[in-house]
Structure formats: C-alpha cells, structure tokens
Design a protein around this nucleic acid. Sequence first.
DNA 1: CAAGCTATCAAGAGTTCTATTGAATAGTCA
DNA 2: TGACTATTCAATAGAACTCTTGATAGCTTG
Lengths: 217, 217
Amino acid sequence: MASGTRKATLFEAIAAMGKALASARRLELIDLLAQGPRTVDELARASDQSSANASQHLQALHAAGIVTREREGTRVRYALAGDDVLRLWLALREASATRLAEVERAAQRYLGEDVERIGRDELIARMRRRDVVLVDVRPRDEFAAGHIEGARSIPIDELEQRLDELPVDREVVAYCRGPFCAYAHDAVRRLRAAGRSARRFEDGWPEWRLAQRDAAA
Amino acid sequence: MASGTRKATLFEAIAAMGKALASARRLELIDLLAQGPRTVDELARASDQSSANASQHLQALHAAGIVTREREGTRVRYALAGDDVLRLWLALREASATRLAEVERAAQRYLGEDVERIGRDELIARMRRRDVVLVDVRPRDEFAAGHIEGARSIPIDELEQRLDELPVDREVVAYCRGPFCAYAHDAVRRLRAAGRSARRFEDGWPEWRLAQRDAAA
DNA sequence: CAAGCTATCAAGAGTTCTATTGAATAGTCA
DNA sequence: TGACTATTCAATAGAACTCTTGATAGCTTG
C-alpha cells in the first residue's frame, strides 16, 4: 500500500538522525561540541582518535543535521546545529542515566565517589547574596566560548597553584561540562583536601545556558 | 590510560540507548507506544510487520531501557518506560523535523497538504469558553488509554456516519497521535468537505499529556 | 491433558557500519 | 611557487545489525 510505504519513508528519515546517536564516538563528539564550536583536530585530540576517524564521524553528524560546518582558512570548525539538537542530546543522556543501570555504574567508575552537590535554584539564590564563589574548571578556551555569568575561570590543572585567589571565608562551587564531566568532581575533592568548603554544581554550562533561554522564552 | 577507557565505557553505555533509536521500525513502535501500552501482536499489526520481527525489536527496546514489559496471561504488554523516554522521542522527532529537509518532505508526502492548525494556548482558551468541540479521531482503544479532558471520541472511520453528533454552529478541532499522524489531517479535510468549520490541534495526546505534567511540576 | 494462541528463540543470508591505513586535496605562509 | 598543515577521500577487512523462516515454549481453555 502506498500509504504504508510513505509512513515507512517518514520514519526512515527520522531514523537517519537516530542512527547518528548510535555510536559512542559520535556521542563523545556531540558532548564536546555542546561546550562550543571546535575544529576537527581539536575534537580528534580531545576524544582520543585519529583525525581521519573524527572527520568521518563529523561528516556523519553533519549529514544527520546534528552539526554545522564552517571553513576557517585551512581548518573546519564544527558546531552543534541548534538548541533543539542540544536538547536531544541532554534528553538521551538523561533517559539513559535513568533507565540503564550500566550508565550509572560506568559513570561512577569514571567519576569516582560522588561529591556534595548544589542545585540550580540554590546556586542562583546564593549567587545573588554573594554567598558563594563560582568557579569554572573547564579548559580556558571553553570558558572563553561561553560560561555562567559571574563565574571565574580556573582550569582544573591550575587549581592548586591558584588556591589563594579564592576567599577562605566563602563556599566554593565548581562546575564544568555537565554531570558526567570529571573536572568538577575532581576540583571539589582537591578543594576539600586543601581545607576549603566546596560543592559541585549538578549541571554544567550547556544545561545552564539552555535553562536561561527557556526562562527567557 | 585507565581514565580514557572508563570515559569510553560511559559513552558506550549511553550509546546502547542511542542504538535503539537507529531503526525506523523501532521508532515506529515507540511512536505507537507513546499512545499507550500495547501487546506484541497489536504492535506488529499496527506497524505492518511479522510478530517475530516486532518481538525482536521490542526486546532490543527493552534491553535499551526504552520500554517496560508485563506478562498478561498468554500475551505480553509493552509500554514506554517513562516520561523521560517520551521526552527523548519527542526531542528526536522535533530535531529531525527542524534539521532534516528529508523529514519535512516525507511528512508532506505522507500527510498531504497541511490543513489549518490551532495551537495549545488558543485551544485551551477556546475550550474554556466552550467555543469549540474537541474531537479525538484515534482508534477507540487509544482514546480509552488516555485522552485530552473534554474531548469526544470519534474514530476517523466513523466520522462521516456520526457527523450529526457535532453541532453545526461551533468550530471543530480534531487531534490524534501527534503532528506526524495522518488522522487529524484527514478528519479536517473531511469535515470541511462536509461544510463544517474545522482545524487540527498541532500536537497530539502524548505532547498534551506531557505539557500538563510539566505545568503541574 | 490436548488444542490453540501468543510470544520468543535460533540460525543464516544479506546488508550496513566502523576503524584503519595511506593517499589526495585545499588553503596558508614564507 | 613550494613546503606545510588540516581535512577529506577511498578502499578494505572485520564486526554488528536486520529480516526471514521455521521451530519452540508458555499460558489458557475446553
């Protein structure tokens, strides 16, 4: 029946985007791109794969409408195609964390013991009262590509050397790429080891940004 | 490096759910399950495939945490695992419709020329004023499994015979499974052909239900 | 218990996807 | 122009996925 094949074609077309989410390597690229645009080489390095392979996956993501591509001289800068795509990635991460015990386990193995968290509402309230210091512990360029207003950038590598930049009498809140990013966990552990009072923000920059936009709309 | 493999394992685990979204057949099953729980046989029939094949896909969805399964005597009833999964499906549908021209094209081929729409806010306002008649044109059992409060069930097959149940002096709003479901389009065309004033609600039952929950939270 | 129905299992052929490798292309800079 | 770099292309082997078919298991009913 003609109607049957047309319906099937529609689902095939949607599945083209679904297929893009079917590889761990591609998801890692998406996760990196959620922080901001990157070149092929940067992405390949950050996700620990050959640039030929990264390029191949990025082309697949491009064909699936997940990322956009822009030439910049000799390099090519990829970026997430839009907030709808970011929402899709966050929904997948959320659902997988809720429904798949294996994700939970793998996260714990990667992140280590969970550290004390602070939620968005409380963070906003405390920020307003100037009650906490918010620290962005991601690499410098990710901070430059966008960060939570009022945060200060101290990449995780520099944390120990720059401890004296942080006031002793206020709680420190660290954040990074998102709930599955190890930097903030690590930062909180090190801060505590140095005798500071510290927690991690339970989301990351992309989630914060999206929440701001949704609130504005 | 150990940290590298652990991160890779985490993304592998998430990709296990991503893989479930990589087949048109499975997406069609998810779309059907968004309307309510169904048995294997019902799903196989509705998606026009052998029940062995449907069963196989449903097991894949089950392993990926997308659906739950419940024995009921000799049959097995599958259901979407939760709202987070529904949100994931809607996010995928939304992103693919926005980013992939092919989805747009396939949708138009399947649904035909678009008919006049009404948005959620306007629908709510008009309902409050008892200004419209809301008709659920999905199959009877889907209506039974859940529907918009205040809607009346007239399955698309029975529309012509039951035209006299609809007041002539009010606008009719038809809705069905969602924006990619053909029933509401079809219903509006037939109603207009019969001289009625009619529009389709731009979402479907699952989106409505989710919006209600989100508003409550 | 036997019959009948629903769902699952098992195996195989065909297809699609993935990583790897080495070569080719395009742009930049001296 | 020529060297250099970043990205992409092309080909391939191996792995994973999908559909089909026919058999099997589990539950219900007479």
